[in-house]
Design a protein around this nucleic acid. Sequence first.
DNA 1: GTGAAAGCGCTAACAA
DNA 2: TTGTTAGCGCTTTCAC
Lengths: 331, 331
Amino acid sequence: MGFQQNTLKKLSEILGISISTVSRALKDHPDISTKTKTRVKELAATLEYEPNNFAVQLRTQQSNVLGILVPTIRNYFYDFFISAVEEEAVKQGYSIMIMQSLDKLSLECSNINVFRRNKIMGLFVSISTETDDMTPYKKLQESGIPVIFFDRVPELGGFSKVCLADEEAARIAARSIIEKGKKDVLALFGHPHLSITKLRYASFKSYFERYAPDSIVTYFFPDQVEASKQICLEVFKERVPEAVFCMGDMILMGVMHAVHELKLKVPEDISIIGISNGLIPTLYDPQITYVETSGFKLGKLAFKQMYSSLKGFDGKEEVILESILVEGGSL
Amino acid sequence: MGFQQNTLKKLSEILGISISTVSRALKDHPDISTKTKTRVKELAATLEYEPNNFAVQLRTQQSNVLGILVPTIRNYFYDFFISAVEEEAVKQGYSIMIMQSLDKLSLECSNINVFRRNKIMGLFVSISTETDDMTPYKKLQESGIPVIFFDRVPELGGFSKVCLADEEAARIAARSIIEKGKKDVLALFGHPHLSITKLRYASFKSYFERYAPDSIVTYFFPDQVEASKQICLEVFKERVPEAVFCMGDMILMGVMHAVHELKLKVPEDISIIGISNGLIPTLYDPQITYVETSGFKLGKLAFKQMYSSLKGFDGKEEVILESILVEGGSL
DNA sequence: GTGAAAGCGCTAACAA
DNA sequence: TTGTTAGCGCTTTCAC
């Protein structure tokens, strides 16, 4: 402790000029003479002067910090999203503040307050499974803080959303299964409360009903690794389906645990297809065929949205990111 | 925009009392009468008064933000570490600011400056592969900002470090291999510049030299998934070793890609053992035997260290976290 | 028990 | 081209 930072005042005293001149010299104000500028800058450099952000912020009421609120960062999808946002943000001189809701409403709210108090300039958020009241976000927006929802977005309008092509992804998966002639299908989705689940489920189901009405599709909503495994063990006891569809990595991991435990061969005994960011499916042998939903690309897209909001563009847009099928050997 | 926050001044005007009384009432100062306190708090609540952090910070020169600097958050180990730190930090009223160095020195330095400017109260850092100059961290410490190094720590003394029992972990792995009677071993480590690599390597090697001098151990330092895979493909062409040791998850993933590609059976054709946080090894069939190094536990430990530093305890300590062997079926 | 006033470090309008 | 001044919103000492 006991370390005192250099201030404009100190510099000005040493140089025998006024504080404001120093301030202006440091920001290359056109009024200031080149000579003064040089003198000031040199001293600032040797003294390692660093502006006091608190003071700057108090003056300008701006923080240059962007917030990211996710259910958890322990997830390859969010990891990539965050990486992408950070990469862009740093380029533009913003810092990133990350908080986790752990899917708890109380944490989500308190985090929003932390963000408020830290005067973030914008927020990226993937809502928790418990979220049903959007007023905190509404308020944020009304305070002039752009909020970009991604991945798990609210169903209401009036918000900027950056989404995966969830319906398309589910459709691609459904089509792939049908094309392979698989008719007995176990389809596993995440928490039924989430829009992402609803979208994927509705789209998957209606595709099957339309193009393969004679298929037998069984639906479950496990949401966790262990739950997925248990459902599989249970279901497979009766009858091993021809194919399993996994809405996400967690589910895929659970399914594969069951598959391994029962010594089932993929794809001979059972076909697997998922929707994933791309890491987990490649760890298995054969690699799992999946519809790619890139957190990285989504992050880039989200930042672009944020940036234009920050720069005054105010359209509440919904942007959708395409999905592609990545062929492994599991289908 | 155009949203004006409530201030103490505003409250004081409405209530017809002074700013300082309002301020004190809000923080339960003993001087203030219960009646006034109630009045003030009620108004504050209805007006949703929130203190302006910038002003508070400018006054107190305290931010209540802790920084975390990691090479990347896209890593299960750091994920867990961050989660643990955040969990504890939130409890104590701190916020967390996370930055990535992406193993680049330039980014590491600029991130440190961002932290400085944001007046973090403490920093957790796992240094990048490029780091060789510790002065920025020294300076931070001298400014009274505690710096806790974790995982990848500097070799010099004079710093607080929270480490995994790297040597022990490597020793456990070596012992397990020897106990299984494997004599032809491929040992893969990470970037040779890192202390974590050096420790694990030295310990692994010396254990083998001491207890199984007749073993043939081949060492490589791939550091990335793809590099690990390539090394295996190359080495296995000559001769498939009895066992492979993987210093981390990335390496394990590369090795398993090669194993899958060559259709080798684990553990019949080849044994595998790793050091890991615990997720990745469980995805394979059979699950990979690994020495556990918990990022979560390390995070808890690191926060404890940080907290005592924050509270004035100033010993530069090195704390080491134990390792345990988790048996899969790969050895 | 409450108020007045100074000041944290900076920016920017206004003077000179 | 440079200096003076008035705050930003808050905490805190000192006075009443």
